[in-house]
């Protein structure tokens, strides 16, 4: 299987604090790979490093074989890797549909002038974009709320909107930072269904960071466990469940 995202001995230090220490992870194309670990284990730091929020102190991050360490987020998005955030980073004053539309910033084909003059090509493009927005909102179940301002959505729907916005950029790989935190049981099942569909129907590669075991165990092809910034285990869900180091990390020594 081809490796889509690869972390090589990635270390991230903030002053004297080592948040991530020599972590290596290989994510295969078209799989759901989970990154789990207790609070403060360095999971979000890994995601932030991969998406260019800050560069690794040492080590390298390869996406589709090319180094992306230290590349700014907007360029990483252009390469086909995008993400959602733990606390969602939506455009709250804008409508649900406009949030998704902005997700297409990189790929939407029209310019200022043609849009202002309503040239035929622009109108055609605009119609295609509207169709795509409708499609994505349908996918995440927000079709009824397309005109709602994003800030007025309940939190679970904000998460789904952020996912739709991420998908609008037509990425080949998604990084999801705790998409299940705070969800109710029924919502967890919906999320599982959605993630599986993204993988099966669109061949999406997903790196999932989460605490919620029904999601992680339910959808993951492979799981990496980190604690205190270090990788302590890696394998398939059934192996991870039995791994003594993992049980110790979660239950305490």
């Amino acid at each position: 299987m081809t490796i889509q995202l690869s972390l090589h001995d990635v270390t991230v230090r903030f002053g004297g604090l080592t948040a991530v220490n020599k972590v290596s992870i290989d994510v295969s194309k078209g799989t759901i790979h989970s990154l789990i670990g207790p609070n403060g284990a360095g999971k979000t730091t890994v995601i932030n490093t991969v998406t260019g929020v800050y560069p690794p102190t040492s080590g390298d991050v390869l996406f589709d074989g090319k180094s992306i360490a230290g590349t700014p987020p907007e360029r990483i998005c252009a390469l086909g890797l995008t993400r959602t955030f733990q606390n969602t980073e939506l455009f709250g004053d804008m409508s649900v549909a406009d949030n998704v539309r902005l997700g297409m910033h990189r790929i939407a084909p029209y310019g200022v002038l043609s849009a202002a003059l309503q040239l035929p090509t622009a109108r055609h493009a605009e119609r295609r974009i509207s169709e795509r927005v409708a499609e994505l909102l349908d996918l995440v179940g927000l079709s009824d709320q397309r005109a709602t301002e994003a800030q007025f959505l309940p939190f679970a729907k904000m998460r789904r909107l952020e996912l739709a916005r991420a998908l609008a950029a037509e990425p080949t790989m998604l990084l999801l930072d705790e998409p299940a935190a705070g969800l109710r049981a029924g919502e967890v099942d919906e999320l599982n269904g959605l993630l599986r569909m993204l993988k099966d129907r669109f061949g999406m590669t997903i790196l999932l960071v989460d605490h919620v075991m029904p999601v992680v165990m339910g959808v993951s092809d492979r799981i990496t466990v980190v604690n205190f910034g270090q990788k302590i285990a890696e394998g398939e869900p059934q192996d991870i469940r039995k791994d003594p180091a993992v049980i110790a990390a979660y239950l305490g020594h």
Binding site: C77, E89, F91, M94, L102, G103, H105, R106, A168, A169
Partner: peptide
């Protein structure tokens, strides 16, 4: 969008 949420904007490629 970037004025409202710079983090969100950079992640969609702005």
């Amino acid at each position: 969008a970037a004025c409202e949420n710079a983090k969100g904007a950079s992640i969609v490629g702005i």
